[in-house]
Amino acid sequence: MRRIHVIGIGAGDPDQLTLQAVKALRDSGVFFVLDKGDATSDLTRLRREMLRTHLPEGSYRVVEARDPERDRRADGAAYAPAVGDWRDARAALCERLIGEELGADETGAFLVWGDPALYDGTLGVLEEVLARGRVAFEYDVVPGISSVSALAARHRTGLSRVARPVQITTGRRLAEGFPEGVDDVVVMLDAHQAFRAYAGQDVDIYWGAYVGTPDEILVSGPVAEAGPRIERLRAEARARKGWIMDTYLLRRRPADGR
């Protein structure tokens, strides 16, 4: 039976690899890497550097393939179907790679940024591959340090406050308003900087891009003051690198000031 490790490798800092992740790396002989082209080639390079650091040369193979393109123009009612089509294409690609590149008694691995259980589709894709019934394998999941945890640590703040909930959401949802009954919101996948809508309110932002990498950028403060700087830095970084990975915590200040 083929075996696969889905390994969370942290938000970008090679030192964020856990001991469990290193053990899983050493137990794997084939590593599947889906790259997104030249714009994000440094992400592929970071993965390879992690492997070279922890594994003997010649003890493993890296299988690279181009990640299917997603229709990023889709919005509104068309958004969910577009994501579904992309995941179907990903499943077909992974099914082929596992079937052709992983021997019946070999162990392979997918290296997932952050934590595989948080805003990543690898687990869903592997379940879809299994459901197709053409390729059989067992898999396990190694948790990693998420960008959310790394962001809070770099800003030296907690994600929640005493007796108050915290919610993780997307920029699309935040544009509809703060979740009811929640004052601390972690926002991921926000291409349109929905935090701008809260510049006139008593809301603080803790923002980070490329957290854990040499390109890390951190900004915090009231949205009214920090927001314009974030917009400028984000635009400059995206133009310079061709891509950006960022997330932020929005914190509404209570009326009693605590």
Rank of each mutant, 00 (worst) to 15 (best):
G144M: 02
R253M: 05
G99T: 03
E138R: 11
V187R: 12
V185I: 13
E216M: 04
E101A: 14
A131L: 06
R196C: 05
G76F: 08
R240N: 09
S146P: 06
L43V: 14
E225G: 00
V62F: 03
G158F: 14
P214C: 12
E128L: 11
E95P: 10
R132I: 12
A131Y: 02
G114Q: 00
V129W: 10
V125T: 13
L218C: 12
D13R: 00
Y79I: 01
R238D: 04
L118M: 06
A235D: 13
E100R: 09
S59G: 11
R132S: 05
P214W: 11
Y248A: 04
R253V: 15
Y79S: 05
I217C: 06
G114R: 00
H54W: 15
F137V: 07
P179H: 07
A237E: 09
E64I: 03
R154V: 14
E180M: 06
E138M: 01
P179Y: 12
V186C: 12
K23V: 10
R234N: 10
A74D: 01
E127L: 05
L17M: 05
G242S: 04
Y79N: 05
V187T: 06
L51K: 06
A117Q: 07
E57K: 13
A24T: 08
I145L: 02
P116S: 03
A80I: 10
L46V: 00
P222T: 04
A21D: 08
